[in-house]
Simulated assay, not measured.
Amino acid sequence: MNKKILSNVLFYIAVVLIALVVLFPFLWMLSSSFKTQVDIISWPPKLFFEPTLANYRKVFEEQDFLKYFINSTIVGGFAVALSLLLGLPAAYSIARFAQKKLAVFILLARLMPGISFLMPWYIIFSRLDLMDSYVALVLSHMLIALPIVVWIMSSYFEAIPRELEESAMVDGATRQHAFLAIILPLSGPGIITATTLSFIFSWNNFMFSQVLSMEKTKTLPIAVYNFLSYAEVDWGGVMAAAVAIMAPAIALTMIFQKYVVKGLTMGAVKG
């Protein structure tokens, strides 16, 4: 009994230590967003300070934060929607017809550093007069979202028994109808998982927006960059902007956490 209690105590101590290590950067960022510039750069660091909302006022009043929020929502929403439209049939085809070469090709697009696509994207969109447009950002963000959708859903579709769609096809349904009427409704957790993860990756992307957008279509990560200048760094503004950017992503993750875990675990089990 004593050994069991000791093992439980050690387990919870280890969990608390790991949680502190993982959460420390976020907690530090959150506390710094309520500090003045002097308190942030003071040494040793101040654990007790008089909180201020001046940094958040800078973010929401001096910066056009609402515009950036709308742009990020539009770009992320359309990129994820188009990725689902193309990725779900592709994932189903990979899962049912063992198209491993196609899967590897899609994975390579995700593994390649995003900066390697910037110059081709810039040349193409500038010649098509699509710079500073939602089209350019949506297509570039699909490089992030589409491979995530395909790889999550292909493993998820493999876990769904073939007999379900085969029985529907015996009754006269086409493969396309069986996919829409049977496979997709059963794939809800996997679709939610792919949607959540791909949207968060798109939401946090900085590089494509920095190069392909200008004043009209800048996204939220640019709000952080606006607090950096040659002469100084407004650390309070940076921290407040980072917290404001992370809040929707954290809320989305917490809301769909159950479905994300279920989607990832079920996709790892072959039926």
Rank of each mutant, 00 (worst) to 15 (best):
D129H: 11
F157R: 08
V211H: 14
T52M: 05
E61K: 11
G77R: 13
F256W: 04
A194R: 03
L186D: 09
G263S: 15
S167V: 11
L30R: 05
M142C: 02
A242K: 01
F227L: 03
M153T: 10
R57Y: 03
Y122T: 04
M169R: 15
L197V: 06
T174Q: 12
Y56D: 10
S202N: 11
I123C: 00
N204A: 10
A240K: 00
K58N: 15
G267F: 15
V170N: 00
Y230W: 08
H177S: 15
T219N: 08
V261P: 00
F208V: 03
V150P: 02
L252G: 07
I94D: 04
M29K: 01
S154M: 06
L53M: 13
A14L: 15
L108P: 01
P120C: 14
T36K: 10
L184R: 09
I192N: 04
L220G: 01
S133E: 04
E50C: 02
R110L: 11
P161K: 09
A231M: 09
P161L: 07
S213F: 01
K35Q: 12
L66I: 06
L184Q: 15
A90F: 00
S202D: 07
H177K: 15
S31W: 03
S83L: 08
V224D: 07
S83V: 08
A178T: 04
L180Q: 09
L108R: 03
E165S: 01
A251V: 14
F201T: 05
F227E: 10
I192R: 06
E232F: 15
A109L: 14
L143Y: 01
I192W: 04
D234A: 06
P120L: 13
L130D: 06
M142K: 14
F69I: 09
N8E: 08
V269E: 09
M246W: 07
I123T: 07
Q37W: 03
S42W: 01
V22D: 11
A19P: 00
E232N: 15
A91V: 13
L17S: 13
Y134W: 06
L23P: 02
I124N: 05
M112V: 14
M254R: 05
M246V: 11
L128Y: 13
M246C: 12
T193F: 09
S31Q: 12
M169C: 07
V243K: 01
V261F: 05
S93A: 13
L84G: 04
Y156H: 15
A79S: 11
T265S: 12
S155D: 11
I74V: 13
T174H: 13
L220Y: 11
K46C: 03
V16S: 12
P113Y: 02
S213N: 02
S31Y: 10
A14R: 02
L164V: 12
F201D: 04
V150M: 03
